[in-house]
Design a protein around this nucleic acid. Structure first.
Lengths: 221, 221
DNA sequence: TGAAACTGACCGTTCGTACGGTTAGTGTAT
DNA sequence: ATACACTAACCGTACGAACGGTCAGTTTCA
């Protein structure tokens, strides 16, 4: 390990900021709020992160890094595009539950990562993830597993139905993320798929995603 | 018409505010910005609307009022729940195109209308609209047109895939709202529906929605 | 003449950020 | 061992700009 004179509170700052952005939104969170919540000075926050915007950039980047790492892991275990597309849905919904704060913060401030110059690493990772999903759908169409669809548009449809969940999903609520993902898959994959509705092995897929998420979890609180 | 000593700029203010919120988000729009854009004083803006929050409330209320009025009109023309559900999708997507600013502003600030006290009229209308869609799906399940699904959850799925479009859809872009709605319906209604994929009479439905939207259009610029 | 539309100066507050100084650990040479 | 240099963590203050909102007064028109 490099050097760590005093144990840094960098991690705490990012975590606290993430929680606050999730709850109130970027504009309603001030650097002062974060500092006060952690009982440190505002100067300390800006010692660790160049600016408030840099804080958001880090939050977004870490979020995408986790999702990509997970996806690379669990997709490797399944070759069938029908399975793979479901895995994606399970991941997106499970992140609503198990990586809630970061997911909400990321989703609600998503436009901010679309244009700002500081966010181009985030943008690159978003594109990479999108491309992955588009490729899966395209492959499904090519093999005849899916009907002829615009794979780009179908990907957006999937992102939409999953990402929007930040506005209403409650982790402790009546329905678990897996249950929701399962029905989303039934409704959507059923529509994409050709012939008789494919048998969806939900439990197995959910387990694979959960395993991948566990091994790339953010640092503990 | 009631009274109008000087012709009021109330409409202009709300329209301008809507456009700005759509583009930048509520927090990034100041009352001063609106006033300067219209070349009036800040006092005038707050003469017409009690507060900045009241401005957002009006924007949301007008948006929901339009959607409800349209829905009540075009749903009356079709009895089949499969048709009706498609009409909803067409409406949600067409509003992204033909009522863009209000739709984006409404979508991106949707959480603000979920909790704030001032927003309860908006909340009531949102609930009414939701209930309508849930009822359609429930009826489809009851008649056997749709498979056994949680109609509440399926409604959220539809709202998600449509509402999320504010983050990426461009009115003048490569794909029209109707085209997108058509594919969304194919992918999703196909999955909901039982038996062979129902014939989707897209063109007719789109026309009905467009007619309804035309007759409840917001005041011209 | 009265009511609505509108103005412009103003208030109190909060914002993000810059910056000089202090404290506490770590590596190194004696 | 112990003195010294160095670095990263952290504090506290200060600042100009912008914020939402108030209000007494002026203009305009039916």
């Amino acid at each position: 390990m490099a050097t760590a004179a005093r144990k840094s509170r960098r991690g705490d700052i990012l975590r606290c900021f993430t929680a606050m952005v999730a709850e109130r939104g970027y504009d309603e969170v001030s650097v002062r709020d974060v500092a006060e919540a952690l009982d440190i000075s505002k100067g300390t926050v800006l010692h660790h992160f160049r600016s408030k915007e840099a804080l958001l950039e880090q939050l977004n980047a870490e979020y995408m890094r986790r999702r990509l790492a997970e996806a690379n892991e669990f997709l490797a275990g399944f070759a069938d595009p029908v399975d793979q597309l479901q895995l994606i849905v399970y991941q997106l919904m499970l992140s609503q539950q198990d990586d809630r704060a970061a997911t909400v913060a990321f989703s609600r401030e998503i436009v901010r990562s679309a244009s700002e110059a500081i966010m181009d690493e985030v943008r690159t990772m978003r594109d990479e993830y999108s491309a992955m999903v588009i490729e899966i759908i395209g492959r499904g169409v090519a093999t005849g597993a899916f009907t002829e669809v615009d794979s780009h548009l179908s990907a957006l449809q999937i992102f939409g139905m999953c990402n929007w969940a930040w506005t209403w999903f409650e982790p402790g609520g009546r329905q678990s993320a897996t249950k929701i993902a399962h029905q989303y898959c039934r409704n959507l994959i059923g529509g994409l798929a050709t012939g008789s509705p494919p048998k969806l092995k939900g439990a197995e897929l959910a387990k694979a995603v959960e395993a991948a998420m566990a091994s790339h979890r953010a640092d503990p609180a």
